[in-house]
Computed example of a mutant assay.
Amino acid sequence: MIQSHKKLKASLLVSAVLVVSLGAISPAPSAAASTSSSISATAFAVQTAIIQSSVRLRTAPSTSSNVLSYLSKGDVVTILEKTNNYFYKVRNADGEVGYTSSGTQYISLIPVPVTPTLQTALIQSSVRLRSAPSTSSKVLLYLSKDDVVTILEKTNDYFYKVRTAGGVVGYSSSMDQYIQLIPVKSEVPEITLPQPVPPVPEASPIATGIEDVIRVGMKYLGTPYEFGSSRSNSDTFDCSDFTRQIFLEGKQFQLPYDSRQQGDWIKGNSKAVMDVSSLKRGDLMFFMSYKGSTASAYAGIDKLAERITHVALYLGDGQMLHTYSVDSGGVKVDKLSASWMNRFLYGGSVIQ
């Protein structure tokens, strides 16, 4: 029952996220969308649908195929593809995958909600992040020059509500000398991919294996975040589930289940690298919890003994591939900001 509930939750969450893929579909105009919907097997954003009346779930897209189970009125399913003019390939709340009629008397697409585009901003000079939109409110931390924050709202003429790269939400001055909005180039956020690395000889199994792992990781861009996600599927990820999955798929190597165990594995089976500049593309990176916005807040810490709270995959050129919150959009490529650099403990190679 817990597993079924989790899968249903993940199915509903995915429907609200625009998945980064080869293409995407437009939101259905109504629940009565016909089988002429723009869903296709080649250009597809995952969408959910609601069953209108009892219908069979079959093993193949044919009325002569075996019946796996029956879908009941009110059931919610995930549409995996529009196989032909008569059948959808779907996954039900129990994770069972099969084919069902695409007739509107049996199934209706659930419109994808339009999510407002969040804007980012660049801090121009050191400024306080406060607990409320008032100069008399508590100071949570200080934002430093060149920090990038996400604008959640313009609260009034003097304050923005913002979220830092470390996930702290608060209020900051909206004055130009402290903060400048970063222009939105297009309606769909662009993902900054790492610059190509110099080619390596084909005979190098280490480099080939790492690139396979990175390719697997990049295919999951946009996959929703879920804390404590199941290690038995790839519908959602938390940070350590993601790194474990991409090494499992890309190199058939099974890392431990959580970030602290993965960090211990690196210390015991590889070499802990304390300096980011010494990391190689494909290395794991481990981070501690947020302690403050300045480097001095992290001074004197024994990094090898500190508790690990996050893991990411280093891509080179100051970029990392990871997932850390629902609000951040799931699996993504991030730049190593000052906040992340302050929290960095150590890294290391899985593939020797």
Rank of each mutant, 00 (worst) to 15 (best):
M1G: 02
S4T: 14
L12A: 13
L12E: 14
V14Y: 01
V14M: 01
V19K: 05
S21L: 09
P29A: 10
A32E: 08
A33R: 05
A33G: 04
S34V: 11
S34Y: 12
S37R: 03
S37H: 07
I39W: 02
A41C: 08
A41G: 05
A41K: 00
A45F: 05
A49F: 08
I50T: 08
S54P: 00
S54G: 02
A60Y: 03
P61W: 06
S62L: 10
S69L: 04
Y70K: 11
S72G: 06
T78S: 14
F87G: 01
V90H: 04
Y99E: 10
G103I: 00
Y106L: 09
I107S: 10
L109D: 02
I110D: 07
V114K: 12
V114P: 06
T120M: 09
A121I: 12
L122G: 05
I123Q: 06
S125V: 11
S126Y: 00
V127N: 09
A132C: 07
T135L: 05
S144T: 10
D146W: 14
V148Y: 09
T155D: 11
D157L: 01
K161I: 05
K161E: 10
K161T: 08
K161W: 06
A165D: 09
G167Q: 06
S172I: 15
M175Q: 15
Q180V: 03
Q180Y: 01
L181N: 00
L181S: 00
L181G: 01
L181T: 01
P183G: 09
V184L: 14
S186I: 06
V188R: 11
I191S: 09
P194E: 04
Q195T: 03
P198V: 08
V200D: 10
E202L: 07
E202D: 07
E202H: 03
A203T: 14
A203Y: 04
S204Q: 05
G209N: 04
G209E: 06
V213D: 10
Y220V: 04
L221S: 02
L221C: 03
G222L: 13
S229P: 03
S230C: 11
N233L: 02
F237T: 14
D241Y: 14
F242K: 04
D258K: 04
Q261E: 15
Q262F: 04
Q262Y: 01
D264N: 06
W265R: 08
K267D: 02
K271V: 10
V276T: 15
L284N: 11
F287R: 07
S289R: 00
A297R: 13
G300E: 02
I301K: 14
I308Y: 09
L315Q: 12
G316T: 10
G316A: 13
Q319L: 11
D327H: 12
G329N: 00
G329K: 00
G330M: 07
D334H: 06
W340Q: 10
R343I: 07
G347N: 03
G348P: 12
